[in-house]
Write a protein that binds this DNA or RNA. Structure first.
Length: 316
DNA sequence: AATGCGGGGCT
DNA sequence: AGCCCAGCATT
């Protein structure tokens, strides 16, 4: 959960997740959709699919006993060099180096490394350093301590060098380059996208689609949804709904405009209702009529959830 | 080496 | 409006 996600955001998800899946066997016995439901809103949903796959592998191939070496752990889906090192050093207190956001910043500053720490060269350097500084005794405690130092003292902006216990070893402090190190590559440009979502209703049920593997929010459910071209008109939205679902609709009023940032897109989502519905649904398995009271069983995309909330408010 | 993947918190 | 976050997998 913590991969590229702040502790603050993770905590409530972590609590709920462990309450429901206290051990690897319980997780392995669940349905993937239930795992995704608990992950709903946290983002990077491949992590949920991966931890579920990994649990099943641990149970099926390791007899339910978690592997304890970096090499074995890295074979599991979703476990890379950092996570494997974290598990080995934290859980088993074996000597395995780690480099993540906090130690990356700390080590780059200690070394005074002026290049991009995420480049191949930077990674080689930092992992080498992490290996060299790692003590024989209590490596897990050491790794966690340095992560904490990176998070609390060696912060991205205005680090507290005056109170830092290792400022005497820090090249960035010596050279007063804390503000320019680490020099992370600029993020990709943001593209603005306009989409439309239509709540197609039959009696008390709405038409939802389980998003396919390989597309964004794979495995999560969503209302009918598609990208609009700038000149899109009402009739073109109606046509798009028919293309996707096979259903003929009369478009109701737009009830909301949701703004949502995802990866390198800033999405403006225009949310509509469908007044009348006729015709037959395309025989694609991913479509399902879901009564509103059963939404709790379906992991929804964030925008899908917001839309559903609006619809509930709309219906009184 | 570059890109896709999410969402929220903080400045 | 940017920047950043206990990264990983794929191309």
């Amino acid at each position: 959960m913590l991969q590229q996600t702040t502790v603050v955001a993770v905590v409530p998800y972590f609590e709920r997740f462990l309450a429901r899946f206290p051990n690897v066997k319980e997780l392995a016995q669940a349905e993937e959709s239930e795992v995704l439901k608990l992950w709903e809103g946290l983002g990077y949903y491949s992590r949920a699919r991966n931890i579920y796959k990994a649990a099943r592998i641990v149970v099926a191939q390791f007899d339910g006993v978690f592997p304890s070496t970096v090499t074995e752990l890295q074979q599991l889906p979703g476990i890379g060099r950092y996570t494997a090192g974290a598990i080995v050093s934290f859980a088993f207190d074996e000597r395995a180096p780690i480099v993540e956001a906090n130690t990356l910043r700390l080590y780059a500053r200690l070394l005074g490394y002026d290049g991009d720490p995420r480049s191949t060269e930077g990674q080689r350097l930092l992992w080498e350093f992490a290996e060299v500084v790692l003590p024989q005794s209590q490596p897990g405690r050491f790794n966690q301590a340095l992560m904490e130092l990176g998070a609390s003292v060696c912060s991205p902006k205005s680090p507290q060098c005056e109170t830092c216990p290792v400022s005497g070893f820090c090249r960035a402090f010596r050279d007063q380059t804390q503000s320019t190190i680490p020099r992370l590559a600029k993020r990709a440009e943001i593209t603005a996208v306009i989409e439309a979502s239509v709540a197609v209703r039959k009696k008390d049920a709405y038409l939802l689609r389980r998003r396919n593997a390989g597309e964004r929010w794979a495995g999560l459910w969503d209302f009918v949804r598609f990208e609009l071209t700038p000149a899109e008109s009402i009739t073109q939205i109606i046509d798009a709904v028919r293309d996707q679902t096979g259903l003929k609709i009369d478009l109701g009023p737009q009830i909301a405009e949701l703004k949502h940032a995802v990866t390198r897109y800033r999405i403006t989502l225009k949310c509509f209702t469908a007044e009348t519905v006729s015709g037959t649904l395309h025989k694609h398995e991913e479509w399902e009529w879901v009564p509103a009271h059963r939404f709790g069983e379906f992991p929804l995309s964030v925008t899908g959830r917001k839309f559903a909330k609006l619809l509930a408010a709309d219906n009184g």
